[in-house]
């Protein structure tokens, strides 16, 4: 099954949770880092990089010998990625290009050719004996995060396994949608603070629009009765797990350690959680 880990707010412990969830179920899952703007999983899971690929998008290139400066491509582009610049002809801002192909279709002279342009990359790392981490990385200055995310999700693993865990980006914009869409289940990691709760509500709104089943993990609790659990209870949302606030977790994390290094008892809970979720679906 495909399980996406998301949150709305950044810094609630998505990546920390995703890594622990993966490590506890390593023989039956693989991990995809779809936070392509700031992928962090590889900082905590050391392994051997066995495969590297480029992610490309088709972007326009103008043949100036054919271009008549008619401006039809500029009108066709809905993203302001093309502009008429007097004698210089048509100029292209690749960071704004959505790669829709509209300009090439609009050009009456056949002066626009679409060429593969690198916007990011994907790497596959072997963690332990055979489990895999797939990491997407957006190139600096490009806005095509969703395209890189989709490429990570489509990337063929070296070995198929039963479960796929997807670490998603913060926020609720198109990157979040690209990351969680078509999942069988979404785990939302939150913290019991006003910011955490406010952004959790936004993420839930997005997940409901996508009609995906979901549950909540409450991280950094000082008491089992807190803002987040009260919210979930009131709205009939399953609380899957609560993880206590501890200085030890923060310090372990700051040294590059994982949640299971700090709280080894969570391993069984995380195995049980995956069993439960695969039973639900």
């Amino acid at each position: 099954m495909n399980i996406a880990i998301a949150s709305g707010k950044g810094g609630t412990g998505k990546t920390t949770f995703a890594i622990a969830f993966f490590l506890a179920n390593q023989e039956r899952s693989r991990l995809l880092d779809c936070d392509v703007e700031e992928p962090n999983v590889h900082l905590f899971l050391k392994g051997k990089v066995v495969k590297e690929e480029k992610v490309t998008l088709l972007m326009p290139e103008i043949d100036n010998s054919l271009c008549t400066n008619c401006g039809k491509c500029v009108t066709a582009c809905q993203f302001n990625a093309l502009a008429l610049a007097g004698k210089a002809g048509v100029i292209i801002f690749t960071e704004l290009c959505h790669s829709c192909g509209g300009c090439a279709l609009a050009c009456p002279e056949g002066a626009i050719k679409e060429i593969d342009t690198e916007v990011g990359s994907i790497s596959t790392t072997l963690v332990g004996d055979s489990s895999e981490l797939t990491t997407g990385l957006l190139n600096i200055g490009h806005s095509a995060a969703p395209a890189v995310i989709i490429a990570v999700k489509k990337n063929k693993p070296i070995k198929e396994v039963a479960h796929r865990i997807v670490d998603s980006p913060a926020g609720t914009s198109c990157s979040f949608v690209a990351s969680v869409s078509k999942s069988d289940y979404v785990i939302l990691v939150t913290e019991p603070t006003p910011f955490g709760l406010h952004d959790l509500a936004l993420a839930i709104e997005g997940i409901r629009e996508l009609k995906l089943p979901f549950g909540v993990v409450v991280n950094r609790i000082s008491s089992p009765d807190n803002l987040a659990t009260a919210f979930c209870k009131k709205n009939d949302i399953p609380v899957l797990l609560q993880i206590e606030e501890s200085r030890l977790v923060a310090e372990t994390y700051s040294r590059g350690g994982t949640l299971l290094d700090a709280l080894p008892h969570l391993k069984q809970d995380l195995r049980d959680l995956l069993d439960r979720l695969s039973g639900v679906i």
Binding site: V36, E37, L43, F44, L138, G171
Partner: peptide, 25 residues
């Protein structure tokens, strides 16, 4: 957060950036 579309829109042409960070990997 991040470095994608909304961040690019927020920083282009700005006078200064103030980056708030933490001492972790």
């Amino acid at each position: 957060p991040g470095i994608g579309c909304p961040v690019i829109a927020a920083v282009t042409g700005a006078h200064r950036l103030l980056m708030v960070t933490e001492p972790t990997p």
